[in-house]
Design a protein around this nucleic acid. Structure first.
Lengths: 228, 228
DNA sequence: GTTCACGATCTTGTATACAATATTGAGCCC
DNA sequence: GGGCTCAATATTGTATACAAGATCGTGAAC
């Protein structure tokens, strides 16, 4: 993270940074994102902050409340269900397509990704591991080579991180390592049907780990969460 | 359309108006959307224009080119395929869900919609008919009562209007009237499986009507297209 | 006639100023 | 102590000013 006096932040990079912070649960659901505070933190004017926040609101990561400000979104139980239903519709398909298009390079990338996730977990960096876990799914969608669906998946993954922050009840790491490894095997075998089935059950498993009756949120100061 | 001196335009309403104009092919793909020109047309400052354009860029209806301006998007052939593939993945499901949830009121709304479309066609308002035709699909997604997927469908429908502007080769009205009527029958019978199948073939039919080898674009002045 | 360079002007990117609205704290009353 | 009111302050919404970059027209050179 670059210090604020380096002045390299655009609205896009700020949005990306905030999204990362949200994804890694450094900015929990419900956190207020003040324009002035963010402007000071990043060393930019409110104009760019507002653009970044608008961008995040289109990804449903941030809720803009007129005259009241921007807040990290807090998906309802209904929204949680919807997001995972949408994932259940799209991701098995991307898994199948990815398997059919798999290359040694792509496979290596996926493996590196899992390794990085394990490393982060062992180092106690659960937020980073969470981010990488979600990125694994996005990588699959990228390999599937369908940008439109990839974009939807990307948004759903980001929103999932909020849902997980609010509703996750399983002690274990987010995605069962085994499930990702099984997917890797299906990809190596270029077995589209298997990849599709594995993704379906993986997502069912994820959804089963959500307690869609609880709601928790913990705001904290912005500077602290962004580490500046 | 309210005259510009009434000062009721927000960035959201401007974005909605522009989206409507794009959808009805009054703003063709490739049209430059100048900030000052739009600000004058709507009687607002560039601040709100920029926000509206950013909103439209997130829906992929407008392409923002840094230092060069905003243009109505021109989907490539690849994008066209992707959009219809994504629709093929999502809309049969929404059709099924809609059928299972159908009420007499919702059915009446759909029927009214088709009637309005016919009226527009007979009046020679092809742009309006086109808009209503797309709205029919969005209505189905709304009845399906899954907001997340509905939002994706809405975006895909809007992008479809651009694709149709560029690649449509059939002389007939956009969606075959018969296909929409058959869907209505399936909805009336609350036959989810039939609705799903009908939607699948309807979308295949639509995609078959696109000539994904041609590219046409016709810019024109903004004031003219917006009728102000 | 064609091409290139340069300057003027236009347009977009961003910061800042001003307007509008919400929040908070102090004081007063019951 | 609790509730209400009001003013000060903070924050958001929007316009405007200034900076940066792109475009276009003109004149000179070939």
């Amino acid at each position: 993270m670059t210090p604020s006096d380096t002045k390299t932040w655009t609205s896009e990079t700020v949005a990306g940074d905030l999204e990362r912070a949200i994804h890694e649960h450094r900015l929990p659901p419900g956190t207020k994102l003040g324009e002035d505070e963010l402007g000071e933190a990043y060393g930019i004017s409110r104009t760019l902050v507002r653009a970044a926040l608008q961008a995040l609101s289109y990804r449903r990561l941030v809720e803009l409340k007129r005259n009241r400000g921007a807040f990290v979104a807090q998906p309802t139980v209904a929204e949680a269900r919807e997001v995972f239903e949408a994932r259940a519709l799209l991701e098995p398909r991307t898994a199948r397509s990815a398997a059919e298009r798999m290359t040694p390079e792509a496979l290596a990338t996926l493996r590196d990704h899992i390794a990085a996730e394990h490393t982060a977990l062992h180092a106690g960096e659960t937020g980073h591991a969470l981010f990488l876990s979600g990125e694994f799914h996005i990588l699959i969608a990228q390999i599937a080579d369908q940008k439109t669906i990839e974009d939807f998946v990307s948004e759903l993954i980001s929103r999932s991180s909020l849902i997980i922050a609010l509703y996750w009840r399983r002690r274990a790491a987010l995605c069962e390592s085994q499930a990702h490894h099984a997917l890797i095997d299906a990809f190596e075998a270029r077995d589209g049907a298997l990849a599709e089935e594995l993704m379906k059950s993986h997502l069912l498993d994820l959804m089963a780990s959500l307690d869609l009756r609880n709601l928790v949120a913990r705001p904290q100061s912005l500077r602290e969460a962004l580490g500046r």
